[in-house]
Design a binder for these strands. Structure first.
Length: 153
DNA sequence: GCCAACGTTGGC
DNA sequence: GCCAACGTTGGC
């Protein structure tokens, strides 16, 4: 079982949306590196939910991967901002995973705190200018995150 | 294959 | 709004 960190802007899709929905299709990923991380996910993996492009940014919850290898439907939708004219039903370019809500943390684990606790080599989200929306989290780092959140692993 | 221009992300 | 980082595109 692996850990991940997944970013979303709370105005667009925040932890409260996931709480209300229970589970969601994590679609709209249009970066090959992030896509490849999704392809490496296995049902049962856990993902820290990170609020980006907000103040203050940070980790707000925990999700569980429930389904992988799904075709991202938004690539075929001309009305979607994620529409990809190069994608066809026969040859989709983008896929996505389904995630289920596990926890909403009572307090934010802020980027500021993450910067105090982790080096960029350990947890890439603390690196200035990092734009990758999905990141792997090593087990030692995951354990330290749980400790900082006051959670048992 | 190189690389400059451009676009996007995201913190501040 | 600014700007750093960096992926993508397109001319050659």
């Amino acid at each position: 079982m692996a850990h991940w960190l997944m970013k979303s802007e709370p105005d667009v899709y925040g932890i409260h949306h996931l709480e209300a929905e229970g589970s969601t299709l994590w679609d709209g990923i249009r970066n090959y590196q992030a896509r490849n991380f999704m392809r490496a996910m296995v049902p049962g993996d856990l993902a820290f939910f990170y609020h980006s492009n907000t103040s203050p940014p940070g980790i707000v919850g925990l999700m569980e991967v429930v389904e992988t290898g799904l075709v991202d439907p938004s690539q075929f939708d001309p009305a979607s901002k994620y529409h990809d004219p190069k994608a066809t039903r026969d040859k989709p370019r983008w896929d996505c995973v389904r995630l289920r809500h596990r926890r909403s943390f009572t307090r934010l684990l802020s980027l500021e705190t993450l910067r105090e606790q982790f080096e960029a080599e350990e947890l890439a989200v603390v690196r200035r200018g990092n734009r990758l929306s999905i990141l792997p989290v090593s087990e030692p780092v995951a354990l330290r995150l749980y400790a900082l959140l006051g959670e048992s692993a």
